[in-house]
Design a binder for these strands. Structure first.
Lengths: 206, 206
DNA sequence: CAAACATACTAAACAGTGTTTATAAAACAA
DNA sequence: TTGTTTTATAAACACTGTTTAGTATGTTTG
């Protein structure tokens, strides 16, 4: 009797329906305007129904969090056909900037928002996505060491954290509108210039 | 007839009273728990009264924003007696990390939150505080150039943005709990190690 | 001094939020 | 068909930022 299997399938479909609606509202109207009620309206269900499929709003946001990491990994993967590891590292940087600036709401969810962390700090697989992309960075650094671009005694993990810190700082200063400080419209130019300087720094020093 | 002057003074006192209450609630209970009503309760006035002295919650937050910058500038100023410019730059980095980690709510307000930006994007003096501290960084970099630590053709503004980006990225990754990813308790150690690596990078390359 | 005006303040309401509860309806099992 | 479980929701709860209408107090003027 496959009735339980069907119910499980239907439940999963409903979860997906809610998630799709959440993503749509989230990416079009932004985080601030994404309420349980707007999501419920989008799928023509009562707000209370959502709570039958997701524990709370944070759990819903966390599902988007996973999706955001999947998408970033996918976009970062265009660099696989670059054989030279240092050129690949540089292109990964470009792709990272491009992803952050093209998906500000996702980026927020992935690296800035506190909400998805709190509730899910207990879970085991929370850091899986983050660690996978951090591993991507570590691997290309390892290859840079192997290829002689970086010194043999390079602390790969520390180097990865340092590079990530810089990239993250750069894009968040822009995304959170703190580059408006300069009051000319040259934010994009500044990002590119700074990135070039940083690339030069790691080339010279690591 | 000094009645108008007295009223003006009383008005300023009331603004200060509200601001003090706001700061107290903000720094003890955190941003999330800081509502107009909790602030009103703290000073034993009606919530509506606050709107007679501040246009909205954002304007109130912006006043704290100014205070946060004042405090950071003050804490960064302990480095003035360090004569060697590079040593001063390094110590400024330490102080920056210390301020961010000791005042996470303030740091959020200064560099992450969108709220104070939106409403006040029109104002002229919004960027004054930010520019003043950025200027502090630029000046010490200039001195590093003059002292021969950095190359003569250094683009000071670009270098400052690059260093700030790194510092900001490092502390926000920590503050927003993304370093929990590593799942050992060595976050602090990682921050120090990464900072040392970055110092080495600018020493070698700039 | 008393009337007229201006200011300071607040209770109550509005429109929104996340979330819970009681209840009704539908689907399933015996 | 009856009994039980699942699914959905209306309504409420306790919040949020903000506005409005009305009162009470302080100041100025006739």
């Amino acid at each position: 009797m496959g009735v339980n299997e069907r119910k499980e399938r239907e439940r999963e479909e409903m979860r997906e329906l809610i998630l799709q609606a959440a993503r749509k509202v989230f990416l079009t109207r932004g985080y601030e305007k994404t309420s349980i009620r707007t999501i419920a309206d989008a799928i023509e269900y009562s707000p209370a129904t959502i709570y039958l499929y997701y524990k709370d709003k944070n759990e819903l946001l966390f599902s988007l969090h996973e999706e955001a990491f999947r998408k970033m990994m996918q976009e970062l993967s265009v660099v696989v056909n670059i054989t030279d590891p240092f050129a690949r590292l540089v292109e990964m940087g470009h792709q990272y900037i491009h992803y952050a600036l093209s998906n500000p709401e996702f980026y927020d969810l992935m690296f800035i928002m506190e909400a998805p962390m709190e509730t899910l700090a207990c879970r085991d697989e929370i850091w899986e996505d983050g660690m996978k992309s951090f591993g991507l960075l570590m691997r290309v650094i390892e290859e840079c060491v192997a290829a002689g671009y970086f010194k043999a005694n390079t602390d790969v993990e520390n180097t990865a954290l340092t590079i990530w810190s810089y990239m993250h700082g750069l894009v968040t200063i822009y995304l959170k509108k703190r580059m408006n400080m300069f009051e000319d419209g040259r934010e994009m130019e500044r990002i590119q210039q700074s990135f070039m300087l940083f690339i030069k720094m790691i080339k010279d020093s690591l």
